[in-house]
């Protein structure tokens, strides 16, 4: 089963994303900030990361930079933000995101992107 790490400081958002992914048959894990996410990413295999930007302690950008600088299989990362700002989008790519989506991400949108990024068809 594909394993997806959902990283967001807001429990509501985590629950929202996990509900969608689990209902589509994915396995999910959660992290509440970059530090926790990094710990998990270094000890478990994930096929996809769904990353919030603004989080306490370690934000999404820092997390991705740390993640990308590690010598581990690099799974795609979707960065979710409340802003559709080109500036933020480029910062996200610079940090190592592969896709930038604006919250709230609709269920079909999230699933469709997930399936594509995981190479599972459309």
């Amino acid at each position: 089963m594909k394993n997806i790490l959902v990283i967001d400081d807001a429990a509501t958002v985590r629950l929202y994303h996990c509900n969608i992914l689990i209902s589509a048959g994915y396995h999910t894990d959660e992290a509440i900030n970059g530090i926790e996410a990094l710990e998990k990413a270094l000890t478990h295999h994930f096929d996809l990361y769904i990353v919030d930007i603004n989080m306490p302690k370690m934000d999404g950008y820092e997390f991705l930079k740390e993640l990308r600088s590690k010598d581990i299989p690099q799974a795609p990362a979707i960065m979710v933000s409340t802003e559709s700002a080109k500036n933020d989008e480029m910062l996200a790519y610079n940090a190592g995101a592969n896709l930038y989506l604006v919250k709230p991400v609709k269920p079909d949108e999230l699933l469709s992107f997930t399936r594509i990024l995981l190479g599972e068809g459309i």
């Binding site: 993640l67 990308r68 600088s69 590690k70 299989p73 690099q74 799974a75 795609p76 990362a77 190592g96 592969n98 896709l99 399936r115 594509i116 990024l117 995981l118 190479g119 599972e120 068809g121 459309i122």
Partner: peptide, 16 residues
């Protein structure tokens, strides 16, 4: 790391 992640992403697209 970014290159690898991009490659994984593109491979995902191809397989999809």
């Amino acid at each position: 790391g970014r290159l690898k992640a991009v490659a994984t992403t593109l491979k995902g697209c191809c397989l999809a």
